[in-house]
Design a protein around this nucleic acid. Structure first.
Lengths: 266, 266
DNA sequence: CAGTTCACGATTGTTAACAATTTTTGTCAA
DNA sequence: TTGACAAAAATTGTTAACAATCGTGAACTG
């Protein structure tokens, strides 16, 4: 009895986020229009959400390496925003565990260690198998087009050999699995775990397995579509194992510091 | 008697702050002073964490009713802190979903609706069963004293009929289950879900089942101790069902959006 | 030369004043 | 009394100046 509802809130599917970053465009861009009575205006700070989204996406695409310093001044001019907004964004990012705030020293992209990596995979092993099983069980009532389209996107990106796109989409497949449940809590949890996974793969992964093999994703999806919970669960477990086994926990590559163009382009 | 939410006035006023420090649970507390000299540890903002913890606890104990307004000025004087700290704390709380920030209107304790309540229980149904199963499987390697002690605390609070303590401990049993895994991601997820559950029970629950029956908790723990995964999982599932079935999703007690409403009743 | 000290620049943390918005209050007329 | 309207008060949002802290490198001492 899983509550099947669409997730209207989280508007940051990241595919759109930013076309043009003009300083102080004061964009109200990605605020879902809602003038309903009970819920008064949407949460404030559309601006800092924009910054958060931007950095989140950069991390997901492994363009922002762990330990990279995010200085306030730099972010201010990058996004054309006042310091307050930047600081709020950094606080939010740190509460998500994406960055780490050090007193009087600044913000650094999170740099998971070995044990944290194990925790991430353990948590995913705990959550994702029941999740896909549940999806497969109730796939009749769910709209899977998002996932189907996503597989297509992954294939296209792979065709064109767009590295960052491939990496991000590989991770997002898993968050979209969670999104398909329509449960915003499950979605949030998976999103956090997937983001952290991206950091981990960037740190400990060899270059070739930076992304999940496309066919594994589509196999999982097909198992879900054919309402085969056991198969879907089994495929997902071995998929997660593939990712984890592809890591080399000893050789961690040292991070660089290039912030300038990373966030500016898209 | 349904009038058990005359929490109206901020339940964490300074008068109570002095004595209300319980030596258990969260690792962040202690030192209610705002002296800037405090620990210069690596983690920043020990002060706003204090505020967050305080409000978190008040919500867990259902002393802070949903929709209660948390004005900045009030919080400033309550905690003896500058406005910046309060605003940062509010931002953090909102990112946890504990409160909701409305533009130019202030911060209000979150007020989950029916569908959100369903999502919370669906998420818990997804996570907690595998969690306890795993605990039971590996209970040989894990230190369960925290849970054992917790059961004792629950019993004691029940003896003394300390309402707020009972409610909080009832919820915290589940977060401590997650804590026993030693996985901080699982812990964070459960903590968020349990907190939200507390709000939901406060909103939709009848007065008698505001807390979990003690024996169900101890039964679950015993199943874990005796390394019986199936039993532990089964007990937990029925436990969650008990909680959810005890709710009346239609009769939501209207939350007071103003403190004066309560005080002006006579 | 090695190591320490100290001052300077750069960065972050904090405060207070100001601006924008909402809420309340007061007044008047139907 | 009720409703509309406007002024006043209260609250939140924003900015900029100021304070505190850290990193760096030059100067100094042994």
């Amino acid at each position: 009895m899983l509550g099947l509802r669409l997730i209207g809130d989280y508007a940051f599917t990241a595919s759109e986020s930013a076309k043009a970053i003009n300083p102080e465009s004061s964009s109200v861009s990605s605020i879902p229009q809602q003038s309903s009575i009970g819920k008064t205006g949407p949460n404030q700070g559309s601006d800092e959400n924009f910054i958060v989204e931007r950095i989140y996406k950069a991390v997901m695409e492994q363009r922002l390496a762990p330990n990279t310093k995010l200085s306030e001044a730099r972010l201010c001019e990058t996004f054309g925003v006042g310091r307050m907004r930047v600081r709020r964004a950094l606080l939010l990012l740190s509460s998500q565990g994406l960055i780490e705030l050090q007193s009087n020293r600044g913000a650094y992209v999170a740099c998971p260690d070995k044990s944290e990596a194990n925790d991430v995979f353990a948590a995913r092993m705990l959550i994702e198998p029941p999740l896909v099983r549940q999806l497969a069980q109730s796939s009749g009532d769910i709209d899977l087009t998002v996932l189907i389209d996503h597989i297509a996107l992954e294939g296209a990106a792979r065709e064109k050999d767009e590295r960052t796109e491939i990496i991000r989409l590989s991770g997002e497949f898993h968050t979209k699995l969670a999104q398909a449940t329509g449960n915003k809590f499950i979605f949030r949890m998976m999103r956090e775990l997937v983001t952290r996974t991206s950091l981990i793969v960037g740190l400990f992964g060899s270059s070739q397995n930076a992304s999940c093999p496309d066919d594994e994703h589509s196999k999982i999806l097909r198992a879900i579509q054919s309402q085969n919970p056991e198969l879907a669960e089994k495929l997902l477990i071995s998929h997660l194992n593939h990712i984890q086994n592809g890591l080399d926990m000893e050789s961690r590559q040292e991070p660089q510091d290039d912030l300038a163009t990373i966030l500016g382009s898209d």
